[in-house]
Design a protein around this nucleic acid. Structure first.
Length: 600
RNA sequence: GCCGACUUAGCUCAGUUGGCAGAGCAUCUGUUUUGUAAACAGGAGGUCGAAGGUUCGAAUCCUUUAGUCGGCACCA
């Protein structure tokens, strides 16, 4: 076990395993410090923000008004880091009076702020390397000669202290490891991440496109993408109907007054498209959420306690005016169709209904083979409560209830303040995109507010009116985001049941085998399989290659041998091996795939 | 929305100090009838994102604008 000495901000020194998480973090923090030192040395008068070790590397912020670092200057910064990382170089901790430290950085508001935050009793601890010193915060390595295998990757923008009301700084990102091959693996993984990006695959496989001339964030689903979506839609509707959901269709346009009643207009307006003024005083609004629509369904009849839980669901199209910089392929769009559902329950039913929704979600994830996710309990921000519906008791009860349900079910989760919807706390299922960004896939939200706003009630056993509670839930997210997620997860090689083209038949000779190929296609199509014959005037190798690059699960070659045996020769995606079998055996195989959602 | 970079044929990309807009793949036409990852030949295809400006002359320089990408902020 290789050990490294780390220096903490309080001056204590200890040895830790360099391959531990802390060991890597200390290396990242150290490299960030050296990058800050290099920036300080190479760019006179640069004002430095924080130097930070992140989950996948490190970064340093700096003011860009006087010094704008360009992408082609990153190499010279690497050289600068190397100069600091000499054999005998050490990071030392010094403690100085705050006033002295502030005097040193009097033209740098960011360092001043960091110093003030870190100061204790008018003294502040600094980490020093060469003649560069900055605030001591996270652990660093005592000896910096291990900073060898690193790369300065990119320059981007970031708000000072993460607040959009603050000035924007430039942020320089990098990555670092103890071992050279670990660095190379990391760089390779970053490259591969780009190759599995759903926008790249979506283009290669012709799944969808966005045309800027028509509108940003408004995707077009090409036939193959539409097929994947249709499979998802049919799957989830069947699943939900089987689990007691009533599927409905509701308008995507509603009178704006409804959104004033719901509170969306007050809390969510900046994400909504502007209302359409119809000229006669009526204002119509493109809906940003489906909940008010399902509330109308609820209110259409007088409801009895016997009907609860009442589960209303819809693949609901909605429009949100997402900020231009947030748009990204199918992941963030302005028109989306959510696998939405709202359960109306009596207070005593909340816990059980929440658990049964979560159980259903876990089943669905299993069918799609989604395993890499975490549960997040999203609470309101206690320091900024005016963003949310105002009812402290409701919030506290609901948040407690969510936590209890998760604990009862024995599921791991983490808690996040400030992530709630404006009307209530929620359970979010967090996943990562190919590029490593966090995103919410599924969500289950408790809502005590909308039933009150819309004055919902049901008749209880006692013959009196009672207020139901709403649970908002999306199991497979929006069709857009879910398709994007699956595309990245499967790298475009969808399991047979989801694959837009399941079987490609290639006749060896068009003049001799086309009829057999066509008969085969008809038999498979009759069994519900998405199949086509490649009749083009091309060589077999060409057609095989295309079937592989298009990631078709099964390629069937038929020639004299197959005609004679009334069979097929099967080549699976990603395999070179060819297996000859009877038509029936192949049909059994692929139907087995479909019924089990299998990828094999 | 903010910071930076980018935008050339359906796709991926060249295009030098401003001087006649290019390649590969795809598409179309022929020839070829093929047994497991790219047959051969020929043709067609672009107001260089858009609008203004500088210049004898702009894909190239300047301004504005839209979009895309990487981040940040915001979120399904």
């Amino acid at each position: 076990m290789a050990e490294v000495q780390v220096l903490a901000s309080d001056g204590s020194v200890k040895k830790i395993d360099r391959d531990s998480k802390e060991g890597l973090q200390a290396l990242r923090q150290t490299t960030a410090l050296l990058l800050a030192a290099a920036l300080h040395q190479q760019f006179d008068g640069i004002r430095l923000g924080a130097d930070v070790a992140s989950d996948d590397g490190f970064y340093v912020d700096s003011d860009k008004d006087d010094v704008q670092v360009s992408a082609d200057e990153l190499g010279q910064l690497e050289d600068g880091i190397k100069k600091f990382a000499k054999d005998d170089a050490k990071i030392e901790r010094v403690e100085v009076p705050l006033a002295d430290a502030l005097a040193e950085v009097k033209n740098d508001p960011y360092q001043s702020e960091l110093l003030k935050t870190a100061a204790d009793n008018d003294k502040v601890a600094l980490f020093k390397v060469g003649d560069f010193a900055t605030v001591a915060t996270e652990d660093v390595l005592c000896y910096v000669d291990v900073v060898k295998n690193f790369k300065v990757l990119s320059v981007a923008g970031a708000y000072w202290q993460g607040k959009s009301s603050n000035p924007m700084l430039q942020r320089i990102y990098g990555t670092v490891f103890y071992k050279k091959d670990a660095l190379e693996d990391d760089l390779k993984a970053r490259q591969e991440a780009r190759e599995r990006d759903h926008r790249v695959i979506g283009n290669d496989l012709d799944l969808f496109f966005v045309d800027p001339k028509v509108g940003a964030g408004l995707p077009y689903w090409m036939p193959k993408g539409a097929t994947i979506r249709r499979v998802i839609e049919r799957y989830i509707i069947d699943k939900e109907v089987a689990n007691g959901y009533k599927h409905v269709y509701t308008p995507i346009l509603m009178n704006l007054d409804v959104y004033k009643t719901s509170g969306h207009w007050q809390h969510y307006r900046e994400d909504m498209f502007p209302p359409m003024d119809m000229g006669d005083g009526e204002q119509l609004e493109l809906r940003p959420m489906n909940c008010p629509s399902h509330i109308q369904i609820y209110k259409h009849h007088i409801r009895s306690y016997r009907e609860l839980p009442l589960r209303i669901a819809e693949l609901g199209m909605m429009h949100r005016y997402e900020k231009s910089g947030a748009l990204s392929g199918l992941q963030r769009v302005r028109e989306m169709t959510l696998n939405d559902g709202h359960t109306f329950v009596a207070p005593s039913q909340i816990l059980d209904e929440f658990k049964s929704i979560l159980q259903l979600m876990i089943e669905v994830y299993h069918d799609f083979d989604i395993n890499d996710y975490s549960f997040r309990l999203s609470y309101r921000d206690p320091k900024n409560t005016d963003k949310y519906f105002d009812d402290d008791e409701m919030w506290n009860n609901a948040q407690t209830m969510l936590k209890q349900a998760m604990d009862d079910m024995g599921l791991d989760y983490y808690e996040a303040e400030g992530e709630a919807a404006f009307y209530g706390p929620k359970l979010d299922v967090q996943t990562k995109t190919a590029l490593g960004n966090d995103e919410t896939l599924s969500t289950i939200q408790l809502d005590f507010m909308l039933p009150k706003q819309f004055d919902l009630h049901y008749i209880g056993e006692d013959g009196q009116e009672h207020r139901p509670i709403m649970i908002h839930r999306g199991l497979v997210s929006t069709m857009e985001r879910f398709t994007a997620y699956l595309t990245e997860m499967y790298k475009g090689a969808f399991p047979t049941w989801l694959s837009p083209e399941q079987v490609k038949i290639i006749p060896v000779r068009e003049d001799l085998h086309a009829d057999y190929a066509e008969d085969l296609r008809k038999e498979l199509a009759a069994a519900g399989i998405r199949v086509s014959v490649d009749h083009r005037n091309e060589k077999m190798g060409y057609k095989i290659r295309e079937a592989q690059t298009q990631k078709v699960p099964y390629t069937l070659v038929v020639g004299d041998n197959e005609v004679k045996d009334s069979g097929v020769t099967v080549r699976k995606y990603g395999e070179e091996k060819q297996v000859s079998k009877s038509k029936q055996d192949f049909l059994d195989e692929i139907l087995g795939d479909l019924s089990s959602y299998s990828r094999e």
